[in-house]
Amino acid sequence: MSEPREKDADTALTELLAAVADGRVAVDRAVRQLAELGLNAVGDYARLDLGRQRRRLIPEIVYGPGKTIEQLVEIVRAFVRGSGWVLCSRVSAEQAAAVRTAVGERVSYDERSGVLIARGAQHELPAPRGVAGVLAAGTADVPVAEEAVAVMREMGVCVHTAYDVGVAGLHRLGAPLETMRLAGVSVLVVAAGMEGALPSVVAGLVDVPVIGLPTSTGYGYGGGGHAALLGMLQSCALGLTVVNIDNGVSAGATAALIARATGGAECRG
């Protein structure tokens, strides 16, 4: 016999509201149940928030490092059963192979960024809305930039990218910026390591919000992303905000919320 399917959060919420409406469940009891709705314990090591994407559009994103292969597999399984999909960051190739074997074919993995996405058979992306751009100063910054791209695309945002356009060859920046302007981007994520100058330059040239994404590219004094982070924080270019070093997830989620809130142009090009 097959295992009974778990109710997803939307079904459980609908049934609870119906029970309140016809008097089968008291309001105070429903309030207590709502506090637990969408939560799912996995063993004694994880308590999953299955309803986060419905509340915030941003899903709960699973951080791969520090989890055993067995823990990650069970967490991914629980998300796919409960909410239909999951995005995991910083996943190793070994972890990804185990998840793909355990969960099935609807698992995609980008080894460059370390992003793994697993979907249930019925999962659909949010309705497309908003356009964003992502720039990376150098090739070494691309993995972190691609983490941001993955989050935005999973949130239904059209993303245009241009990589290796840093200040060491500033003439490379003009054409990609013009392409993104014509595409109607409403926010830009700019990833840079070393001295981290590119976000300040871009913020001085565009009329949309810029999210500076410092990367750990670099070495010596100020290396590991520290000089990049401090340089972005000290920028005199207005309209630039900054996330932490290598935090592509936060940059992508924030950019997606901005892009979806502003709507604007359809994805093209």
Score class of each variant (00 low, 15 high):
Arg153Trp: 12
Ser250Asn: 15
Arg106Leu: 03
Val189Thr: 01
Leu240Pro: 04
Leu16Asn: 01
Val131Leu: 11
Asp44Glu: 13
Val80Met: 02
Ala21Leu: 13
Phe79Val: 00
Gly263Leu: 11
Leu213Met: 01
Glu6Gly: 14
Glu195Phe: 09
Val144Lys: 00
Leu173Phe: 07
Arg129Trp: 07
Ala228Met: 13
Ala18Gln: 15
Asp44Lys: 05
Thr161Phe: 02
Leu205Ser: 07
Gly156Leu: 09
Ala168Cys: 03
Asp49Cys: 10
Thr215Ile: 07
Leu188Asn: 08
Glu15Phe: 06
Asp246Tyr: 05
Gly220Glu: 12
Ala30Phe: 08
Thr14Asn: 12
Ser89Tyr: 02
Leu170Tyr: 14
Thr161His: 05
Tyr163Pro: 08
Gly212Asn: 04
Gly120Val: 06
Cys267Thr: 00
Arg153Lys: 15
Leu177Arg: 11
Pro199Tyr: 00
Ile117Asn: 04
Ile61Thr: 04
Gly120Arg: 05
Gly133Ala: 11
Ile211Leu: 13
Arg29Tyr: 08
Ala140Phe: 07
Arg112Phe: 07
Leu17Asn: 08
Ala255Val: 00
Val208Phe: 08
Leu135Val: 07
Ser89Thr: 14
Leu233Met: 14
Leu116Trp: 06
Ser89Ile: 03
Glu178Met: 14
Arg77Tyr: 13
Ile245His: 09
Thr14Ala: 14
Leu87His: 05
Val73Phe: 04
Tyr109Trp: 12
Gly82Trp: 03
Arg172Ile: 10
Ala253Trp: 04
Leu48Ala: 05
Val189Phe: 05
Ala21Glu: 15
Ala197Leu: 13
Ser89Phe: 04
Ala96Trp: 10
Ala26Arg: 14
Glu266Ile: 07
Leu17Glu: 13
Ala183Gln: 05
Arg55Met: 00
Ala127Trp: 10
Val42Ala: 04
Ala228Trp: 09
Met180Ser: 00
Tyr63Thr: 06
Leu57Arg: 15
Arg129Thr: 06
Leu13Ile: 12
Thr101Gln: 15
Thr11Val: 12
Thr161Leu: 02
Met232Cys: 02
His160Val: 12
Val27Met: 13
Arg106Asp: 07
Lys7Ile: 07
Val185Arg: 06
Ala255Pro: 00
Asp22Val: 05
Arg47Ala: 11
Gly104Thr: 02
Ala26Tyr: 03
Tyr109Cys: 10
Glu178Trp: 11
Ala118Gly: 09
Cys236Ser: 12
Gly169Trp: 11
Leu177Thr: 07
Arg54Val: 02
Val134Asp: 00
Val107Cys: 07
Val73Ile: 12
Thr254Cys: 13
Arg81Asn: 08
Arg52Gln: 14
Leu240Trp: 00
Arg106Ile: 01
Cys236Arg: 13
Gln95Met: 00
Gln71Asp: 11
Glu3Lys: 15
Gly174Pro: 04
Val25Ile: 14
Leu257Pro: 02
Thr14Glu: 14
Val151Phe: 04
Val242Pro: 03
Gly114His: 06
Thr101Asn: 13
Arg90Val: 02
Met155Tyr: 01
Glu74Cys: 05
Ala265Asn: 10
Gly84Met: 04
Gly156Cys: 07
Glu178Lys: 14
Ala145Cys: 09
Ala96Phe: 10
Gly264Cys: 09
Gln234Trp: 06
Val131Thr: 15
Ile61Asn: 02
Ala21Ser: 14
Ala97Asn: 03
Arg55Tyr: 02
Ala191Cys: 11
Gly66Trp: 12
Thr14Pro: 01
Leu240Ala: 01
Thr179Arg: 15
Leu39Ile: 11
Val144Met: 01
Ala30Asn: 03
Ala41Met: 05
Glu124Ser: 13
